[in-house]
């Protein structure tokens, strides 16, 4: 039986291939799904530009000690609330005379951490629950998704405030809070697409070949769930930064001496009538970052929307 696979009679629609038959080792076009995505992104200049902006923001946070002109925590009573371009304080100083630019650079570390870590954690947790719920269906789905609905019932800010309030302040607690808040929506996205995939015939074909559930989840479900989840997660980065800033603003996030964009806004708001532009600077940083993440995720969505 085994040798029977040679000598195919040329089928009629093989004619359309129209290429000389004999060739050496076939040159299969190996541009996988991600190759295709990259191919599309390459010509999407707006997305590339904002990707570059994100890289700049990340780099500026990483290299903050090298880039900062001043110590972000060094106060100076003589130079409080100075305007833009005051001597070396390019973005002015805050109510304690600390350099705004340095604080924004250092604050980017906290804010980006708050933007990225909870989203990654929530993607794993929510994605796992969502895929399991979507693929298993039935009672397990009901249990998982209704539990998620409990979290959905609260407005996200209120939920974050409640959790943060009960856990107490501090960076780790803030990360946990944000993860908990972001998990349900990611779980829902993963569940929706996993349950769509489950009803497709190729999953049945895999089952019919005797594959285990784990193998089907890994090879057939996950690859199809990953792009909608990834796209949605990228939109949540900016939401997470904003939420974290909100928590810090309310005093539920990192504690005062630490530079953080939300916290800076909070403390500077009292000086808004004195130096409105200087006070808005941390807000500009938040705005720029969240716009960049949103636009990149939009471009990513388009690039990943490969015809099924």
């Amino acid at each position: 039986m085994s040798g029977a696979l040679v000598e195919a009679p040329p089928a009629a629609d093989a004619r359309a291939q129209g290429v000389p038959a004999r060739e050496a080792e076939p040159a299969t076009r190996v541009r996988g799904y991600w190759g295709n995505v990259w191919q599309r992104l390459r010509y999407d200049y707006a997305t590339l530009f904002f990707l570059f902006v994100i890289l700049l923001i990340v780099a500026s946070a990483v290299f903050a000690p090298l880039l900062s002109p001043f110590d972000p925590n060094k106060a100076s009573m003589a130079h409080r609330l100075k305007p833009l371009f005051y001597h070396d304080n390019i973005l002015g100083t805050d109510e304690q005379g600390r350099d705004i630019l340095s604080r924004i650079l250092y604050g980017g570390r906290t804010s980006l951490l708050m933007g990225i870590v909870p989203v990654v954690a929530a993607t794993f947790v929510g994605g796992l629950f969502g895929v399991v719920a979507g693929y298993a269906g039935g009672r397990l789905n009901t249990i998982i998704m209704r539990s998620m609905d409990v979290f959905f019932a609260f407005p996200s800010v209120l939920l974050a405030v409640a959790i943060s309030g009960s856990l107490g302040g501090g960076m780790v607690n803030q990360l946990i809070t944000l993860t908990v808040v972001l998990t349900p929506p990611l779980c829902r996205v993963a569940e929706t697409s996993a349950s769509q995939i489950r009803s497709m015939d190729f999953v049945d074909a895999a089952r019919a070949s005797g594959a285990s559930t784990v193998s089907i989840l890994l090879h057939h479900v996950l690859v199809n769930v990953v792009s909608p989840v990834l796209v949605y997660a990228s939109t949540l980065v900016s939401a997470s930064i904003l939420l974290a800033s909100g928590l810090s603003f309310l005093g539920l996030g990192v504690s005062p001496p630490t530079p953080d964009w939300g916290l800076m806004l909070s403390t500077l708001r009292e000086a808004i009538y004195v130096r409105p532009i200087v006070c808005a600077m941390p807000g500009v940083a938040i705005l720029l970052t969240s716009i960049a993440f949103n636009l990149v995720s939009d471009g990513l969505r388009q690039a990943m929307d490969v015809k099924a």
Partner: peptide, 24 residues
Amino acid sequence: FQDSYSSLNPRLPIEESIAYSPRV
């Protein structure tokens, strides 16, 4: 299967789809 559209995994090259069952 009947529906040739939904019976192949859109994210797998077709040779991977075929090779899947022997690998299982």
